[in-house]
Each structure stands twice: as C-alpha cells, then as structure tokens.
Write a protein that binds this DNA or RNA. Structure first.
Length: 306
RNA sequence: GGUCGGGUAGCUCAGUAGGCAGAGCAUGCGCCUGAAAAGCGCAGGGUCACCGGAUCGACGCCGGUCCCGACCA
C-alpha cells in the first residue's frame, strides 16, 4: 500500500457514509484533500444506486470517490478486482497528495487491501472438474489428503470453501494453506480503523427505516429496469439485498409487502454478520453511538486524519 | 344456534395404536482467501388453549369451558 488510509468500519445503515462526507468536508485543506474509497462489494456495480446506498452524484461532486461504479451489473466481480482497483486508487490519491478515507462494509475486501492478502489465483478448468463430484464428503477427504492444515480450518459441510481450497491445491500444485495465514491474522499494519457501534435495537430500527426510504426513492423501478436489461444481473449482483427480494416479487412469487419485509430481515442479518466479522479484529477502535453518528464520530475520525 | 375442522417454540406447521415433545423460519453465538450483501456450523427457546376425569403414566382418551375458521340455518 502506498499511503496508509484511515478506515471507518461498521455495519450497513450505521451511518458510515455520512460520517465520511462530514469529515471530508470539514477537512478541506486544499493542500491535502480527503478522498473517500468505498470498500463495498455492491457499490462497485453501475446502475445499482438506491439499494446499495451508493454515494449520490451530489456527494461525489463534493468529495472525490473511488471504487464505486467499477463494472456493469451483469459483469463478474471478485475480491481480486477489488484489491487491484483499491490499490490503484491509493496510488492516485497519493500522487495528488491526498488522504484516503475508507468506508468499509465488506470485511473480506478490506482485509485483502489493508492486510495485503495473497490471492492464489484462479484455475477454472480444475474447478469445473472438482465440481463434478457431488459428494461433499468425498471432496473433504481429498482436501484433507492434499492439505490437512486447510481442511482443519474448514467445516466438512462447507462445500464452497472446500471446493475453492481444492481448486488452489490442485491448480497451483501447492497447498492452499501455504499462501498465507488467511483473514484472521490481524498483523500490525499501521492502519487506523474506527468502528461505529450501535445497540442491536437501534440498528434494527435504522435498517427498517432505510429500507422503507429506499422504496420511497424508487428502488422497485430501479430493480425493474435492471431486470429488463438485456444482459441481466451477474450472479453476485443478483444477490444484493433488496434486489434479490424484489426480483422474486417481480417474478410474481411474492407480494411486495413480503418482499420488503424479507429485505428488512435479511439486511438486519447481514448487519449482524458484518459486526461479527469486524469485532474479531482487535485493531479496530470502537465508538458507541447513541443518536447522531456525525456528531459523535466525526471528531474521532478527524483527530486520526491529522 | 347447529355441524365439521383447528388451538403444540416468537411465526408457520409436523407429531405420538398413551411412555422424556419435532422441523423450517426467526433470535443468539461462532467460522470465513477469487460469489463475501455469498457460504457454513453450534445453541437457547414449550404448563402441547383452559378446567376436571379414567389410567402406573395424557399433548394424545372421556366430559366440560373459552377462542379461531369453514359450512348449514
């Protein structure tokens, strides 16, 4: 990494983006402007704006943003592309003598960048061959044979992780575990991370409020347009919260009310999963918020940006 | 008013020819390297509507009460 960013982490609907905007505008030293980098697996897709809570055009005009709108919504996108884009963004920010402020909701993407995860590469033909085997237990046994260290860290029912580990072992000829300690190493990387923490009840309320607000802003129309586009949505984009559920509704398999309620539940669950991911990282400085994230957090972030 | 269903976990519902009460979802907790807004695991949770009866033993059988639904009048 060229320059050390300051990172704001927190679950969805915690108010990360508004904090970042406020910080960036408060710190308008012309010599070293703040750039916001979105570390978010869904804001990378163009034309998915309302449901991903993407920074608005107005916000993007006020403060330079990075890692937003990187690909079309029918395209495949993975951590590797993200890591590349974020690295390029950091370089260009450094070149402009700016300061990078990360707004991070996707833990894996953040780790990939700030802890410089080594991505072992992809081996598509190998993967296809592995996928032929339908019995996950058999795959697990094979992995346990090739790379016992990796197998030990994976639940034997987690087909997804088993397949990927096997893909790397067979494709690269080296054990998956030889590529590094993984996502839970938490090395001292010098990056300051500040976490926004809400009580569960308040966060749940904010999630529900935000989903209703998105509906009022026209999320249904946005999803309808994407659904009608010739290329459709990529596998990943089609799983985005709010989009996934509204697509089911548009297929006539669920009422609109149900789809909205499901979106609220799934978003709440996602927020909890994000909290669980981030709270394992001992390097994060947590700040509890009771009412107003901007008022309560901006001073903390600003202090670290000096 | 009558007949027939039904009342079991927060929700939707299984269940037992009487023998320690189940699933899915939700909730809590944990895991996480190319789909990560994804994926996987573990856990808590019940006066089986209420009252009485027969039985060694009742969520189940018998009698009554109260609720809900459908149909009939």
């Amino acid at each position: 990494m060229s320059a050390k960013p300051v990172v704001i982490v927190g679950p969805t609907a915690s108010g990360k983006s508004s904090v970042a905007m406020a910080v960036a505008q408060a710190e308008t030293s012309a010599s070293s402007p703040i750039h916001i980098v979105a570390v978010d697996a869904m804001q990378v897709y163009r034309d998915m704006n309302i449901g991903t809570a993407k920074p608005t055009v107005a916000d993007q005009a006020l403060v330079p943003h990075h890692c937003v709108d990187l690909v079309d919504s029918h395209e495949r996108f993975t951590v590797a592309e993200f890591k590349k884009s974020a690295t390029i963004a950091l370089e260009s920010i450094a070149k402009e003598n700016g300061r990078a402020l990360f707004v991070a909701g996707t833990g894996l993407y953040l780790t990939a960048v700030i802890d410089d995860l080594v991505l072992p590469g992809e081996f598509p033909e190998t993967r296809v061959a592995i996928e032929q085997e339908l019995n996950t237990a058999t795959l697990f046994a094979r992995l346990n044979d090739l790379d016992p260290d990796a197998a030990q860290k994976i639940e034997r029912s987690n087909r997804r992780r088993i397949v990927r580990a096997l893909e790397v072992c067979i494709g690269s000829g080296k054990p998956f575990s030889s590529f590094g300690p993984g996502t839970s190493a938490y090395p001292d990387n010098g990056v300051i991370q500040i976490g926004l923490r809400w009580s569960r009840d308040k966060l749940a309320q904010r999630v529900a409020d935000r989903v209703y607000a998105m509906m009022n802003e026209g999320l249904l129309a946005e999803v309808t347009a994407l659904r009608n586009s010739k290329q459709g949505l990529s596998r990943t984009a089609a799983q985005a919260l709010g989009y996934k559920e509204l697509l089911v509704h548009l297929d006539g398999k669920m009422s609109l009310d149900e789809a909205v309620n499901e979106t609220i539940i799934h978003t709440r669950q996602f927020a909890v999963r994000q909290e669980r991911w981030f709270r394992r990282d001992p390097r994060i400085k947590w700040v509890s918020i009771s009412e107003d994230p901007v008022a309560e957090i901006v001073p903390v972030v600003a202090k670290h940006l000096r």
